[in-house]
Design a protein around this nucleic acid. Structure first.
Lengths: 226, 226
DNA sequence: GTTCTTATTTGATCGAGGTCAAACCACGAT
DNA sequence: ATCGTGGTTTGACCTCGATCAAATAAGAAC
């Protein structure tokens, strides 16, 4: 891991993100004031469950996976964060302890925001507090959505739901490129890679074509019904 | 559903709860100022997924279940809130729309806090904002814990984990009473009632005795190993 | 206590997905 | 173009937990 200062390009990425875009300039500047950037290689561990954690992380580029370890060494993905997302914020309110492991899925650059400082700033700046609450809420929703999908949907249905989540409504014919390896998608959906593969082949009958990372939908209705 | 005013006993319950206890008296009073109490019978629907929701709810007595519906009518529990818990707060940051259904599991009294007002108060009162952030965080953690347990543990392991969560550390011999029907516990753990029953009988071999709602542990170690 | 109703347990069966092994394919390096 | 490595798919098998049906137990109402 190498650390650098925040350059103006990184700064632009930060300011365009969902979290910062609604903040007044002064607030953003205060937060970004002493931010450091770190770079990580594929598979690098960013932090581990139970460890002290006094930063909140922003993904400047790359991809990060949040997961828990079972006693037997098996891993369960909690979330995957692409470029532009903020993560690790919940440790801030839970005694600065990480509740999961985080790993770089590919070469990744992170901006590290001092969490104590952020919390201080939130106290005096309602806009920051509000943005944090929205962030926490979104993350809670993501986890609840996952939980509900795990419990209600079969593997092909979860995959269908993922595809539909990437397809603008009203359109019936659509194609997009997976933002990561199938491997990673499988983890995110709580499936073994083999199960994901079989799910895709089950969806083929409903007009889904898979060529490498490119997914093509020919019949949105059929997917919704699945 | 019948609605009443907040009496002094209810008020005491509220002020002793995890959310309110850290707030300055002035802040609590401001929040509780125009709170109304509603009573609900077993099985009553409190609100439904997608509905407009402009209150945050506090469980004065009884038990509430939060769940999502699948296309086929099956239900997946997201959380169960006993007396003293606050719920429905995430709608406040998501356009005042409920993201799940809520149902009274038994006769229940709720205090209804106006969410717009609460949000306003949070803007001017850092302590309230902070308490809300902690609440959101706890709820996010609950969902993540559930998700990880669902993905990593078998049914008997989940039950063991639930029991251990109710057993103070360091003690090897312990007994407690389930705060709800096995039915409800099954839902909370993402199991069919039959599966819960079988899980209990699997744990019997590790020194767990179940008599009605009373669970008895004779060997904490064995449970932890399970 | 008796009876009725509702929870829980038990048995039997079935299907979704995990796991392991092997085939296959894609893509970067040479 | 060829080779090799690692991602992906396919096949075979097996386990866990869902489901349905039936038997019991536990409460509630009388």
């Amino acid at each position: 891991m190498k650390t650098l200062r925040l350059n103006s390009n990184d700064r632009a990425v930060l300011l365009r993100s969902c979290f910062f875009e609604r903040l007044p300039t002064a607030a953003s500047s205060a937060i970004l004031d002493d931010v450091v950037v770190s770079t990580h290689e594929e598979h690098d561990l960013l932090f581990a469950q139970g460890e002290a954690l006094d930063h909140v992380f922003f993904v400047l580029s790359g991809l990060v996976r949040l997961y828990r370890l079972g006693k037997d060494g098996r891993e369960a993905d909690i979330a995957v964060f692409p470029k532009g997302e903020l993560f690790g914020e919940s440790a801030m309110f839970l005694g600065n302890r990480a509740t999961a492991n985080a790993q770089a899925i590919e070469t990744t650059m992170l901006a590290r925001i001092d969490s104590r400082k952020l919390r201080k700033l939130a106290e005096r700046t309602p806009e920051i507090a509000d943005a944090l609450m929205q962030l926490l809420c979104r993350h809670a929703q993501m986890a609840e959505d996952c939980l509900a999908e795990d419990r209600l949907l079969t593997a092909p249905q979860r995959v269908a739901s993922y595809i539909l989540g990437n397809c603008p409504d009203g359109i019936t014919n659509f194609s997009f490129r997976l933002p990561f390896q199938k491997n990673v998608l499988a983890g995110k959906l709580g499936l073994a890679p083999e199960a994901l593969s079989r799910a895709f082949s089950a969806l083929r009958r409903s007009g889904v074509t898979v060529k490498g990372r490119v997914i093509e939908i020919h019949d949105r209705q059929a997917l919704e019904r699945f």
